[in-house]
C-alpha cells in the first residue's frame, strides 16, 4: 500500500485521486473528532469538509519527513475548535441518539444493582451531555485519548505539546468531566449515592 507521504507528494503534483485516497483513509477519524467536538451530525460533517479543504490548501506546508496522521488530526482538532468558537451561540449540544453499549460490570463488584441497571441508560446520556459542556480543549484531549484511542505520545504530537502535559490535561479533563456529571446527576436525581453530602 502506498504510504501517506507518497500520497501527499502525488497530490502536490496535481493528482486529485491521491488526495481522495487520503480522504478515504482519514475521513472516519476526522469525522469522529468533529462529531465528538460538536455533538451534531450535520455540523460535524460540514466541519469535516472544512478540515479536508484546509488540509488540501496547506498540503504544501507538510513536512515530508514526518507522519501525516498527527498532522491531519491536529488540523481536525484546531478546525473543530475554531468552528465551535465561531458558533458559541449554539446552545443545544446533544448527541443525536442515545448510547446502548454492552455494559459489563467490573468483576468482583456488585454491579448488578437494579438501581444502576435502570439508571445506566440515563447515566450514559448524562455523560455524553457532560462531555459537551466541557471546554473545547478538554473535549479535544478526551476525544483524542478515549475516542480516537491515541496514546499520550501521539496526542502530544497532535496538540504540539509534551507527553507530560498531555497526561496533566487528561487528568484535568477527567476531573472536570466528573464534576459536570455529578452536578447533572444530582440535579436529576440519578445515583444520588455518589454524593457524600
Amino acid at each position: 500500500m502506498i504510504s501517506d507521504e507518497m500520497l501527499v507528494e502525488q497530490t502536490l503534483t496535481g493528482d486529485i485521486s491521491a488526495f481522495e485516497e487520503i480522504v478515504n483513509r482519514y475521513k472516519n477519524s476526522v469525522f469522529a473528532i468533529a462529531y465528538r467536538m460538536t455533538g451534531q451530525y450535520q455540523e460535524a460533517e460540514d466541519i469535516s469538509q472544512d478540515i479536508f479543504i484546509n488540509l488540501y490548501e496547506k498540503m504544501y506546508q507538510f513536512d515530508g519527513n514526518k507522519k501525516l496522521s498527527p498532522w491531519i488530526h491536529r488540523i481536525a482538532v484546531n478546525t473543530s475548535i475554531s468552528a465551535l468558537r465561531k458558533k458559541k451561540n449554539m446552545v443545544s449540544l446533544s448527541f443525536d441518539e442515545a448510547f446502548v453499549p454492552n455494559y459489563e460490570a467490573f468483576s468482583g463488584f456488585d454491579m448488578h444493582n437494579p438501581q444502576f441497571q435502570v439508571e445506566s441508560k440515563e447515566l450514559k446520556a448524562e455523560i455524553n451531555a457532560a462531555i459537551m459542556e466541557l471546554p473545547e480543549s478538554y473535549r479535544a484531549v478526551i476525544t483524542l485519548r478515549y475516542q480516537m484511542d491515541f496514546n499520550n505520545q501521539e496526542i502530544a504530537g497532535i496538540l504540539g505539546t509534551s507527553r507530560d502535559n498531555v497526561e496533566v490535561r487528561i487528568h484535568r479533563a477527567r476531573k472536570a468531566l466528573r464534576r459536570v456529571i455529578l452536578k447533572r446527576c444530582q440535579e436529576r436525581g440519578i445515583i444520588n449515592e455518589l454524593s457524600r453530602d
Binding site: 472516519n28 450514559k124 455524553n128 478515549y146 456529571i181 455518589l194
Partner: peptide, 30 residues
C-alpha cells in the same frame, strides 16, 4: 460510595471509548 464511583468511572470510559455512537458519514461525502 467508592463502588458507585468506580461504576461511574467505568461508565464514563465506556461512553468515551464507545465508537458505536459515531454515525457513518454520508456516501456522497467524497
Amino acid at each position: 460510595h467508592c463502588r458507585n464511583l468506580l461504576y461511574l468511572t467505568g461508565m464514563e470510559n465506556e461512553v468515551l471509548a464507545d465508537p458505536v455512537d459515531i454515525p457513518a458519514l454520508a456516501p456522497d461525502f467524497n
